Simulated assay, not measured.
Amino acid sequence: MSDPSARSAAPRFILASASPARLSVLRAAGVSPFVRVSEVDEDAVQGKLGPDAAPDTVVTELARAKALDVFTALTGDPVLADAVIVGCDSMLHIDDELLGKPHSVDIARERWRAMRGGSGELLTGHSLLRVRGGVVVGEAADHCGTLVRFGTPSDEDLEAYLATGEPLKVAGAFTLDGLGGWFVDGIEGDPSSVIGIGLPLVRELLGRVGLGIAQLWAGNPPASA
């Protein structure tokens, strides 16, 4: 039997990410989240998983680590009286490699020269913690993958794109909702997950812990409301 109090809750949505793209997706979907950035050492997490870890496992475990880190950091904060914490991690799986943020122009250039005219799968891990009274009472995690078909930007256009700095800060060195959208020929799957947070998957994860979208809207109204 389900807990009536859980069904009537209006939990605060805590986004464990500094990504402006994820924040934008949630706000456009009617949710104004509380943002708290995790301080997880992603290289350390991947190191513990080992080189043979499946790509979907890597992104999901990174997302879980981020959600747990933010939960720990907020211990004692009133926001944890009734909340859901969501951590995400995105990486591009292409040519048997799992690629995160390039961080440098040289690496981004090399990646784009290899990606031009090809395709890869953008994987996004999601981890959701249901918190009541400062205690984790439910957890759900999963990943989603979307096939991305890349265009063939000219060398001139590629250099102009690299000069903006945008591709250095995002998984796979591209965006769908920004300047990089000019160079994406198509996708097969959920566009919101390519941007950074998959709304259909988050809806599913909420359902696994006894929550629905109406409750999320009620607990996280737009700032202007």
Rank of each mutant, 00 (worst) to 15 (best):
L201S: 05
A67C: 07
A114K: 14
M115A: 09
G50D: 05
L216A: 12
A160G: 10
D177H: 02
D82E: 15
V58E: 01
A65Q: 00
S192R: 09
G165P: 12
E42Q: 00
A9V: 03
V31S: 01
W217C: 11
E159D: 15
L15W: 00
G76F: 12
S17C: 02
L158S: 13
D41T: 00
T164D: 07
R12H: 09
A21K: 10
G210I: 06
W182M: 13
M91I: 07
P102W: 07
G87F: 03
I195Q: 06
P167C: 04
S127V: 02
L158T: 12
I107V: 13
Q46W: 00
C88F: 04
L129P: 02
E42A: 00
L158K: 13
P191M: 08
F183A: 04
M91E: 13
R36G: 01
G134R: 07
G198K: 01
G219D: 08
D190W: 10
F150R: 06
L158G: 13
E42Y: 00
R27C: 08
E166F: 07
C88T: 15
A81N: 14
D41G: 01
D41I: 00
H126A: 12
M115P: 04
L49T: 00
A63L: 02
T124W: 09
G47D: 08
L122G: 02
S154D: 12
K48Y: 00
E166I: 11
A54C: 03
H103L: 14
G219I: 08
D82Y: 02
G219A: 11
D185L: 04
S154R: 13
W112H: 09
S2W: 04
